[in-house]
Amino acid sequence: MVAVSYGRRFAALSLAVALGALGCNGNDPIPQEVIDGLPAEVGSPSALHRPGQPCLSCHSTYGAAAPAFAIAGTVYKENAMGALAAAPNVKVEIFDSAGPSRFACTNAAGNFYIEKDKWSDLTFPLKVRAGQRSMNSIIGREGSCGACHKLPSDDRPDNGAGRDSAGVVLVDDGDTDPICGGGAP
């Protein structure tokens, strides 16, 4: 057994901590580019903030915003004028590949989430149903709905559907669930 001085141990530990910190402080270009591209916060952060944006960009180990999410997103409906509006009281049911399904309810902003601590063994791929609509495809490994269901932009008008976006998550107007504080579907 080789004796190691406390000084060397401390130096090695410091180096490991420093390297670990580097790994999650803006030095991973792919998630950082997403975070840097998000619009500025409006008001103060809450469960109602940043609807339609990729939640796990920040609410993750890398982004470090609390709480970390296992899966999160925003559900919309089209109002009488055909414009997108938040869809509250919608039941979003998530079926993972390993165990029974779980569900979350959308809030007044249409946002829903399940915290990572409450579904730490979430197993991809997933299938999801929002209200009465089921996703056509599986979810391969992304916990943010907004990463693929992008908000409308100049090159993705209307509901945000485009070459690399399935458009926002849409349910029919009135598609709420009593378990989520809404009326009967």
Partner: peptide, 27 residues
């Protein structure tokens, strides 16, 4: 269906890019 979702190989930056109806569309 299995590999070409928008969060996996249905991304322009990913090797073995897969296009399809429910994923990335051809430019």
């Amino acid at each position: 269906r299995r590999c070409g979702t928008l969060d996996c190989h249905g991304q322009a930056t990913r090797p073995m890019r897969i296009y399809g109806q429910l994923g990335l569309r051809h430019p």
